[in-house]
Design a protein around this nucleic acid. Structure first.
Lengths: 148, 148
DNA sequence: TATTGTTATACTCTATAACTATA
DNA sequence: TATAGTTATAGAGTATAACAATA
């Protein structure tokens, strides 16, 4: 009769996801720093590439951050020439963001960095284990409305 | 010939782990707030329960935080009656921390909270998928030296 | 002189509230 | 009056540096 107490804290998915998520984020942050951006900037680029959100309010919703935070992110990306910011002619209160050619390139570079982190992090796992993990993470993210 | 560009950013394990890790951490944080602690306090309790680190320096190493941060964590846990803090008679510079009965109880409560978050987060996955995920996360954590 | 713990300080991230302009 | 974006402000979290006690 084992397991009277249930699995210890460190064996829960919640705790491990938190710990590994922080590790993954740290490594990703270190790599993309070379391009002058941080994870939230990349998330914004990815949200634009995915489509469906182009005003700053919509983007704040998708990224689950305060609208005021999007201002600075967009400022920085515009400064890097990665996004265009244009007033919506129909409703001049809205800023419509779109990816430039440079923005697509930057996103591709950061995506390559994420793949590099994947390789480091999942090194040693079997190919099948990696595939299963990706699929499971995708399903969980999907069930919790994390398109980005 | 698909996949010329490789998987998009949102499909990388690094990005999903970061996102899901933040979600798991948020939910865990919300639950344990009822006990007056935050994730780092719980990590300290778990490290003590796991053994192998009892001085504040050692604990800082295991938790991968600055030693100065451990001071405040231990202060709070001592205030809650969850840990004892005793000078090492052999080397009076060292503070030796240990779990009290209340500390074991607190850790058990927080572990139950983590299980509750697991249930929420992994809801909808098959039992087998959950087990495989736990095993894979454990293996990755282990390979990267994350005992806690 | 080196190390443990502590305190003081500063920096990063992000949210909330106040404000401007449009609607 | 309500909404999109912006700016100002404040709080949480954590690291680094300076300091005290002990080795």
């Amino acid at each position: 009769m084992k397991d009277v107490k249930g699995a210890p804290l460190a064996d829960t998915a919640a705790f491990r996801l938190g710990r590994l998520g922080a590790l993954a984020a740290d490594r990703f942050t270190a790599r993309i720093a070379a391009h002058g951006v941080k994870p939230k900037h990349v998330a914004l680029l990815a949200a634009l590439a995915a489509g469906g959100a182009e005003s700053q309010q919509d983007l704040a919703g998708v990224l689950r951050v305060a609208p005021s935070l999007v201002v600075g992110l967009a400022d920085r990306l515009e400064q890097l020439g990665a996004v265009r910011r244009e007033r919506d002619p129909v409703d001049r209160r809205r800023q419509v963001l779109s990816l430039t050619e440079a923005g697509h390139t930057l996103l591709a570079q950061c995506t390559a960095d994420a793949h590099a982190v994947d390789a480091e992090l999942l090194d040693g796992l079997s190919g099948k284990a990696k595939e299963t993990l990706r699929a499971t993470l995708a399903e969980i993210a999907d069930r919790h409305g994390l398109s980005i």
